[in-house]
Amino acid sequence: MAYGTWRIPRSRANQVIADYESGQLALSEALEALGGSSRPPLQEAETAPLSRERLRQLLTELDSLVGLEHVKDTVREIFAFLYMQQRRRDCGLRTEPVVLHMVFKGNPGTGKTTVARIMAKMFREAGLLEKGHLVEVERADLVGEYIGHTAQKTREQIRRAMGGVLFIDEAYSLARGGDKDFGREAIDCLVKHMEDHRNRFIAVIAGYEREMEWFLRTNPGLPSRFPIHLTFSDYDVSQLVEIAKRMAWERQYRLSPEAELKLRRLAAEAKARAAWGEPFSNARWVRNLMERAMRRHAVRLFEAVTVSREQMMRLEAADLEEGGAP
């Protein structure tokens, strides 16, 4: 087909011409847009939209997260596959369109949202998504109040997510209300749009592992439409400590050795309680603890007349105190 030689999507070309026709563009601008958008793919072929170096760069941000080895491996697999697809296409081999809708399973605070955000950016830079933004929604954003309202709300959210990632947190709650609940309508609408706009947005459904398994079982069409499953395991104690240290480092605080020991003890206790069924929110627990520590640090030094730079940065064991949110 002649379009192939231009390497410009038909819709884009038609858009440019329509813009020209309605008087929004000068002719040379229209030609530039037609030629200009035919040029980037050519350049891309040279610089390769997914060169190996670029991929490594993209992966470094993900690699900088603590733990999550399994997740990192899977993401690496996905991007290696995308890269291979592209190389195969260059050689004229057959390539399948890639479906990238994903399920994120894991306990609270295990980095589901963070990873989704990073991946959205990676997909954009790899040329799979136009914008690469993340739209975070929950049940209340999708489910309406009366019949017909749900599809409308869901469609609106999907429209917002076009060109990016639609991240549905606690997605299992869509199926929890029983047969009369409008949540089912939201699921049906979502599934329909996922098929229709396969290349334009990526849906990520996230939630706790057990609930998500149950959710995927309730609707027979769901598991096959989310081919990628990522399981976010809980952090162990040393990973929690590592997260705390990085968090402190980013805000220009340091943990004293005693504080670190105490943090280790607190984390071990919290995890032990979590094993008995008490809620534990992993990295979020660490963040809350650290933010509280910074406040206590400020109170402790409130009365001091002169505070050295070192003191201002140093969090002591006494600052670390559990309390408040789990």
């Binding site: 002649a2 379009y3 038609n14 008087g23 000068a26 002719l27 037609l34």
Partner: peptide, 27 residues
Amino acid sequence: GLREDIDESPDLRADMAQTLRAMLESQ
């Protein structure tokens, strides 16, 4: 024939847009 200026009459514009469309499909 193509002209550069943007303030052309709408039907001339339509003619040129038609040319551009044909251009995309010509061998």
